[in-house]
Amino acid sequence: MELELFINSTIEILKAVPTTLSLVTLSLSIGFIMAIFLVAMSLSKLMLVRFFANSYIYYFRGTPLLIQIYLMYFGFGYWLSMHENVKQSIFWDIISEPYWYAVSALMFNTAGYTAEILRGAILSIPKGQFESSYSLGLSYYQSMIKIILPQAIRQALPAYSNEVILMVKGSSLASIITIMEITGTMNKIRSETYAVYELIFIAGSIYLLINFVITRIFNYLENKYKIVSN
């Protein structure tokens, strides 16, 4: 591979970085909010609600991400496209965009994993924290939001940083449903130039860099909010 081609493809792959990052951040942020609701549901007193949340977590942690993306895009998206009135509607521009299928698949997936992480963290908070906040007259929700969740989120930080890295790696699967993020762009250039090693080197380095930055950020957060134990 000549130097010129190397530089050109590096630039082209770098241009795809925002797509990867937006996929990851969008799905992570919505997924996190969903996860909080899921945890609340899995800790609920109602059997049916608990059952729903637990089976959601069970399904999304027990199947490969690829199958979830396939079900979203080739399953749900294909089913939508079979209906004429959906095709005529004004939403078709959004519905026919594979980007949203990738975002929603990643989002549902990370919600399941994050919920499990958060649940573990909440259960690891000593019961005395609850009892003391009750004794101060806080309600269940108040003590959950003001006392338990902040501690649980700190507890969950290391596991959550792993989940974020898994999401960055998982976003590469969006290339399978024709999204031109880093892996997709790399694959496109590969099929045009037949260069393999150099392109994988470029893409791999970018992913490594992203993941390195993420671990750094989480290390910083973990140090900033250090758990002070006596």
């Binding site: 890295i165 590469s172 699967l173 994988i200």
Partner: peptide, 17 residues
């Protein structure tokens, strides 16, 4: 490196290279 890059890249590397 292997834990930091997507699994898909490792597969592509072996499949095409």
């Amino acid at each position: 490196v292997v834990r930091g890059i997507p699994e898909l890249l490792v597969i592509y590397l072996l499949f095409f290279g």
